[in-house]
Write a protein that binds this DNA or RNA. Structure first.
Lengths: 116, 116
DNA sequence: CAGGTATATACCTACTCGAGTATATAAGTT
DNA sequence: AACTTATATACTCGAGTAGGTATATACCTG
């Protein structure tokens, strides 16, 4: 369970993260809101904690868990090159549609684009 | 192997995606550049293809694989709420640092912040 | 201190998935 | 047609991991 990617591969962990994005929550609150058995919640929280996604403070018997930004920022950085890639694609599509618009507006039922 | 998240959890698959971000590649090229056994490459490409991360065109015996943007965009969208979260944090930190700057520049060795 | 609440952990099991090896398929070359 | 290149697939095996159940730990309340 090394990487950020493996951590967020698990749906319950993503649910926990999404829940924590609004505000910190105790284990019991997470348990109730996500309708998840308590050991399951604790185990996922442990994984998230050890990977730096969340941190906890003690409040009597409770633990209040809150989000930490770093690991998800790392994910965001990994995405950067791909963002450049797909925005290039959008640009190309826009240019293409612009050209089509000029050349013949008369054929709106066109089915296939030409292949190189 | 349903979700986008599970697909990119695998390091070799991430490597393939990163390689394809520059331009399309044949299976053999991927195999050589990533020093990965051919069946491994093919199997990961299959997973990526079925999940919509890549598409292939046939060139004689070769298959040229290229990136498709949608699945990674989906990941990008999942990150959106968290981005709001951490930019809020940066703002708060900046305000805090600003205040500290005004109030007393004279105590740079402060150790602990007050707890509620 | 007895009982209750909140959370963590230990143990087991079932399942998934990736690696490795061998083989199949298909196209190109001689 | 034989051979080679390029890619896909089938099969087996081992490791990792999530879920379930039971139990441990810690704190709070009467």
């Amino acid at each position: 369970m090394e990487s950020v990617f493996e951590i967020i591969a698990e749906p319950n962990r993503r649910a926990i993260l999404s829940l924590l994005v609004s505000s910190e929550q105790s284990v019991g609150e997470i348990e109730r809101r996500l309708r998840m058995p308590q050991p399951t919640v604790s185990k996922h929280l442990r994984v998230l904690r050890e990977a730096g996604f969340v941190e906890a403070t003690v409040d009597a018997q409770r633990r209040l868990y809150r989000l930490r930004p770093e690991p998800l920022q790392e994910l965001d950085e990994w995405l950067a090159p791909f963002r450049r890639f797909w925005s290039a694609h959008v640009d190309a599509l826009e240019r293409y549609l612009d050209r089509m618009g000029d050349e013949n507006q008369s054929k709106p039922t066109k089915k296939k684009a030409k292949r190189k």
